[in-house]
Amino acid sequence: MKFMKKTKDKVEKELEKKETEDLFSSQITDEMKFGKNFIIEPSIARCKELINGRLSFNGMNPEIEREMAADKEDRTNAPPQAKSVDVSDLEMAKFQMSITNTVAKKFQKKNERHSKVNVRPNNKAKFLKPNDDD
């Protein structure tokens, strides 16, 4: 009968769920169970914020000193650089808007495309008949 079949399906589903849980229980890590509260960082360099160990002083190796100077500049200038941007938000919005129009146009049908209001006016140069009155 129909109502009995439903119960049977339910029981089977539950059994299957239990089986898969048992099967993969060894592979479920603590991280999956308890959520990602801890991040593991194997390197002590990150924990103690160590600097790069390749250094040169007073012109012994100009190549390394150039790199050191560049790093130092990055360190001191980092916060203001983050604020100033090449493209302002407004410019970006305008640019994105024009892209949206272009892409939208691609998906329009041909006759729709022509019926659009902001389509460029058709000002193709027409052949002008020469005046032969003279």
Binding site: A45, K48, L50, I51, N52, G53, L55, F57, N58, M60
Partner: peptide, 21 residues
């Protein structure tokens, strides 16, 4: 030697050397 206080930089002063730690 590589701590944030940069002890190697302090030691350098006007001496010329190159180091890799």
């Amino acid at each position: 030697l590589l701590s944030k206080n940069r002890p190697l930089e302090k030691m350098a002063e006007n001496r010329k050397f190159e180091i890799a730690v």
